[in-house]
Design a protein around this nucleic acid. Structure first.
Ligand SMILES: [Zn+2]
Ligand SMILES: [Zn+2]
Ligand SMILES: [Zn+2]
Ligand SMILES: [Zn+2]
Lengths: 166, 166
DNA sequence: CGCGATGGCGTTATCATATAACATTAAGGA
DNA sequence: TCCTTAATGTTATATGATAACGCCATCGCG
């Protein structure tokens, strides 16, 4: 079972990170098998790097990490992998940072949304559907048909807020 | 009195656009006078262009519009004006589009948030504080201290939805 | 008034992010 | 096998944003 992402992602306490990455990859494998998508070597490696970083990660940083191990890939290599992963719902883009982060959330009834700590850089995807409900009702009222949401809340996570308190 | 921005901005019906621009500029003049900020010629012109476009506008488009009339400004000219206007709260950045839009909203008790129509390109800043309230309570629960929000809801405005209907 | 401090702007160069276009290779089905 | 399609490689370029430096206008002060 996946724990609420909020806790793991924003927590500063240690966790079994290898297992965390492995879980994400096996979920990805399962999802792709089930949907007839091809999680090729590059795509899988990009996803793995994103999870390994465990923070919103920039495309060119991924590119550098890839090139450190396999030679000289060009930007399209990474961007195509990112496009695939986005499309498959395996990652999200953090628009306010031009960065990408892994998704461990079920989006049947809610859209992606994030708390992002400006101090430690961690981003937590939160799953509550309350925000979606309010947006839906506001949209309804305005006759607006919702397609996609970008919700990124910047601030201080609990741990960083605590250590800031003079 | 400023009407709720939602209606004006997403409405496809005509409005007195010259007055709309003039209002925005006079509000900006007042705010800057009051806060001891200098709304210089360039800054004012950039703000005017943003309002004239009445849609999220890209920095390099503004640059082109400026250059069409005054010669050859360089990117920093526009970006510095944009930084000033953002800082002053006179415009917002639409992160999902790397574009900028004028603000006609009172942000005492709520943070910027937008409905953006993918068909007509219009963006409406909505003022409801319900969304802020829910986010605040979710944040509270997680011990997260909110600093800034990026809320951009993409979809179809009422007018475009109506004309799409089969 | 003369002077120095500051802020705004011009200019050049460069960095950062993302995609277009086309060639090549790999995978999968008849 | 051979054909089709999807994925990847490769080169070039588009698009978005900032660093760094110098000049000049504005303003406070002696
Ligand atoms: Zn997600
Ligand atoms: Zn933190
Ligand atoms: Zn606003
Ligand atoms: Zn529309």
């Amino acid at each position: 079972m996946v724990q609420p992402a909020t806790n793991v992602a924003l927590s500063h306490s240690a966790h079994d990170h290898d297992a965390c990455i492995a879980d994400a990859l096996s979920r990805a494998d399962a999802l792709c098998r089930q949907q007839g998508l091809r999680l090729t070597a590059i795509r899988r490696r990009v996803l793995e790097l994103i999870w390994a970083n465990h923070q919103p990660t920039k495309a060119y940083d991924l590119l550098a990490q890839i090139n450190a191990e396999r030679g000289n890939a060009a930007p399209p290599t990474v961007y195509r992998a990112l496009d695939f992963l986005l499309e498959a719902g395996l990652i999200h883009k953090i628009e306010s940072q031009n960065a990408f982060i892994g998704c461990a959330v079920d989006h049947e009834r809610n859209q992606p949304k994030f708390f992002i700590c400006r101090t430690c850089g961690r981003a937590a995807e939160i799953q509550s559907s309350q925000i979606d409900d309010v947006i839906a009702s506001e949209a309804e009222e305005a006759g607006f048909v919702v397609d996609h949401q970008t919700i990124e809340v910047d601030g201080l996570c609990a741990a960083c807020a605590a250590s800031t308190k003079s």
